[in-house]
């Protein structure tokens, strides 16, 4: 019985010990001049915007309120993108699968469509679900999209016709990562492998970057 109680106590302490070890590692890495995260740090940081768009369930989604305090990856793109956007989403999905349940539960991934004409809410939902059913898809009016882009200090997406019909959309291609302090200090460029996200997410959860 005493052993059980002791074991239980130790088990309860494990997350605390793990967090402590993580912070100790952060301090050692800082002292050694090593990067804490493999993403690129940006300054000034982007404050988490308090803006509302429409989620794929058709309901308003207040980005600031719904993701407050959470590690949040957010990127802009379109479902007809064959290259950068699906690779981002696949690598993020691959990374999330490698987290502990507690880490996974603390992370939100948001995709904002820059092609609201073709990206209906069902199309957006189906596309995102092919990567991870928990990914949040947001669609808005031109004004809502412009406000979101301005909040991230990125140029507006633009439509460009392709030969033979159809069009592509030029858009910001980095992934912004918010930490629990409700600021995005870190961005991830296209082609960031899942392993790098796996390396960074525990640190982002600790607010280390």
């Amino acid at each position: 019985m005493r052993l059980f109680v002791r074991s239980g106590g130790l088990l309860a302490l494990l997350p605390v010990l793990a967090a402590g070890c993580g912070r100790l590692r952060d301090t050692v890495d800082r002292l050694r001049g090593q990067p804490l995260v493999l993403g690129a740090t940006i300054s000034p940081a982007v404050p988490r915007p308090d803006l509302t768009m429409t989620a794929t369930d058709g309901r308003p989604y207040d980005f600031g309120q719904r993701t407050k305090g959470r590690v949040t990856f957010i990127t802009f793109g379109y479902t007809h993108c064959p290259d950068v956007c699906p690779v981002h989403m696949a690598n993020l999905a691959g990374a999330l699968k490698q987290l502990t349940p507690a880490q996974r539960a603390a992370v939100t991934v948001v995709f904002v469509t820059t092609d609201p004409v073709r990206d209906s809410l069902p199309q957006l939902r189906q596309w995102l679900a092919s990567f991870d059913t928990t990914f949040v898809g947001l669609r808005g009016t031109d004004e809502q999209l412009a406000a979101m882009e301005q909040a991230f200090h990125i140029p507006p997406a633009s439509r460009e016709d392709l030969p033979g019909g159809g069009y592509g959309v030029s858009h910001s291609a980095q992934v912004f990562a918010f930490t629990p302090d409700d600021s995005a200090h870190v961005i991830y460029l296209p082609g960031m492998p899942a392993a790098d996200y796996v390396h960074d997410i525990p640190r982002l959860l600790r607010g280390a970057f």
Binding site: I154, P163, G164, G168, H171, S172, A173, Q174, P190
Partner: peptide, 19 residues
């Protein structure tokens, strides 16, 4: 159909796809 495209970084965080 199929088309060769090149995705190019525009230097301001934007990605542009060109045939």
């Amino acid at each position: 159909s199929a088309q060769i495209h090149r995705t190019m970084a525009m230097g301001n965080g934007m990605e542009h796809m060109t045939p």
